[in-house]
Computed example of a mutant assay.
Amino acid sequence: MQERTGFNDKVALVVGGSSGMGNATVRLLAAEGCRTHVLDITPTADAAFQSCDVQEYDQVRRCVQNIVAQEGRIDLLFVAAGVHLFADIEGTSIEEFERVLSINLKGPFYVLKEVLPIMREQRYGNVVLMGSDQVFVGKGSSAVYGMSKAAVGQLTKSTAIDYAPYNVRVNCICPGTIDTPMLTPSIERFHQMSGMDIEQIHEVLRTAQPIQRLGTPEEIGKAVLFLLSDDCRFMTGALLSVDGGYTSQ
């Protein structure tokens, strides 16, 4: 397999790399020759692992410092950690509100706060943040989740501008509905709220995309690899849709 430009022997950090789209990306990076590190609350054997709750800034700082002490640098960063919540405002508890924002918004901010100075100093870095199709469009019963992802889109743009002078690129991957473990509890919650049959919900989700199926974690991982690679040196501040055509409708 031909190696993609700029991966061999790079140091990569994937936050939320133990499952789903993050884990698919971890495995693809390792196959490309990256020395890959994972921060997550669930262990994985696919890369060097440290337990880290992204809601806790001190944990993020300690883990990043450990990687730099070991490797001397961080070249690539994918912040994949996130949670979904299917609820409107009245159906969202204060605890759920705070948890979604802590993981989906504070988490990326904390990681960037620690990693960007390293990339600025080394005058090189490629960053990908985890957005959503809800960076572009609204969906019902998705008030807090949609708010958090729209904010990540804006964080991407602003940070890309700030760090372009240091040869640090920052882009955002915006998946549609992807067949990951995170999808299951959302489907179950919708089933309980609506009474709709589980298989019927799956069918609605599948046919919502012009491609007529859900995406796979590996398809998102390959798009993330493109954004992390040196094949797209002129891309920064981009919000890249990988959604089966959903936001084109």
Rank of each mutant, 00 (worst) to 15 (best):
A143Y: 02
G140N: 13
L28A: 15
V26Q: 14
V135L: 06
R169I: 01
G82Y: 14
R169T: 03
L29G: 09
A223R: 08
I103L: 10
G245N: 05
Q65M: 09
L29Y: 12
V204M: 11
T207Q: 11
C52D: 04
M193E: 15
F78A: 08
Y57D: 08
S132Y: 04
I94D: 14
S148Y: 13
A150I: 05
Y163P: 00
C174M: 10
G245W: 06
K157M: 10
P210V: 12
A48G: 00
Q200Y: 06
S148E: 13
N66P: 00
S186F: 01
L76D: 00
R35T: 11
S19Y: 00
G244Q: 10
H37P: 00
Q65H: 07
E121P: 00
R73C: 03
L129H: 12
A81C: 02
M196W: 05
A164G: 03
G215Q: 09
T180G: 11
R35Q: 13
S93E: 04
A47W: 10
T44G: 07
F136E: 08
G153K: 07
D231Q: 14
I67M: 04
L29C: 12
D40I: 09
F7Y: 14
H84Y: 07
V204W: 03
V79Q: 01
A69M: 03
R233T: 15
A47M: 04
S18E: 08
G20V: 14
V144N: 07
G138W: 05
Q65G: 10
L205Q: 07
C232F: 08
L129I: 09
Q249I: 14
A223P: 01
S51N: 06
C52E: 07
S229E: 09
T5I: 14
H202Q: 11
A12D: 09
T247W: 04
S186K: 13
V100C: 05
M196N: 05
K157I: 09
R123F: 06
F109T: 11
P181N: 12
P217E: 15
I220R: 08
I173P: 01
I103S: 10
V68I: 14
M119P: 02
Y246L: 13
E219V: 11
A151F: 05
R206G: 02
G245K: 06
L13F: 05
I118H: 09
I220A: 15
D231K: 09
A208M: 12
